[in-house]
Design a protein around this nucleic acid. Structure first.
Lengths: 135, 135
DNA sequence: GTCTCATATCTCAGTATCTAAGATAATTAG
DNA sequence: CTAATTATCTTAGATACTGAGATATGAGAC
């Protein structure tokens, strides 16, 4: 399912005309609200130089804007430009709708069971990833 | 969960010292048996030139071997070298064991429900990806 | 058989992205 | 107020990808 989901994202990215990493990053900014370049570094595991380039690409296409953080002026906060990403959200909409339709076929108890499994599986993967990075 | 799974794969790839795409490709060859360069193209959505380079990298490190297809000598079949990938499989083992342990906490009926949901979700993503690529 | 077209992979030039190291600027601690 | 730290940007060099074209094999028409 992870592989299928990655293929879906890749297909959307190709339609939009941006790289998969760039789209993934855009999604992250959308979900996490305005984020700093450093947060993008942590999330994508890219170096600072690569993140600078990534933000440059997204900004050049108008999807995001850079702004100085008033609290800490070393930081750069990156904000989504809502109008610009609307076409992208529309490409995701059919998948979201069909997922919702799939979920409606299950009872609340069943969905809770599935969600619980998914959360535990996610935690397992994240924990093991941390282990591999650390030791 | 897809993102977490991707992070786990990335962490394994980093430990092994190869790129994520290369590891993903190795996994595919392992699952699908000996495959041709063309099948790798389809799976990874890379161009033929990129796949040549990818096989070169895996072969140089000894993980796979090239061989001519006796049926069609234009084709190049790529085979896993089992001894070489053993250390990689060991890095995946803990995650596999813990996933198995998680699954043992559920009844057969519950697991069937979850598997069914996952399969349907996978099909949804693949179908939508095909739509985006086609129309 | 041989000619043509299609298929499978490789090669190569140009482009893009990444890493690593170092520069710049702002913040924090002593 | 100086030194150390933090956050981002810049740059050079390495690597990988795309697209076009080369090479070699296979398949069908005649």
């Amino acid at each position: 399912m992870g592989a299928a989901s990655a293929l879906h994202s890749q297909a959307v990215a190709k339609r939009v005309g941006i790289a998969s990493v760039d789209l993934e990053c855009l999604d992250m900014i959308l979900l996490a609200g305005p984020v700093t370049a450093g947060q993008i570094m942590e999330h994508t595991k890219l170096t600072s130089g690569a993140v600078t380039g990534l933000i440059d690409r997204l900004a050049r296409k108008g999807y995001v804007e850079r702004a100085a953080d008033p609290q800490d002026r070393r930081k750069v906060v990156v904000r989504i430009v809502p109008e610009a990403i609307r076409p992208i959200l529309e490409l995701f909409a059919p998948m979201a709708e069909r997922s919702a339709a799939l979920m409606r076929q299950y009872s609340v108890e069943e969905l809770e069971l599935i969600a619980d499994f998914v959360e535990k599986g996610t935690e397992l993967a994240l924990e093991r990833a941390r282990e591999l990075e650390g030791g």
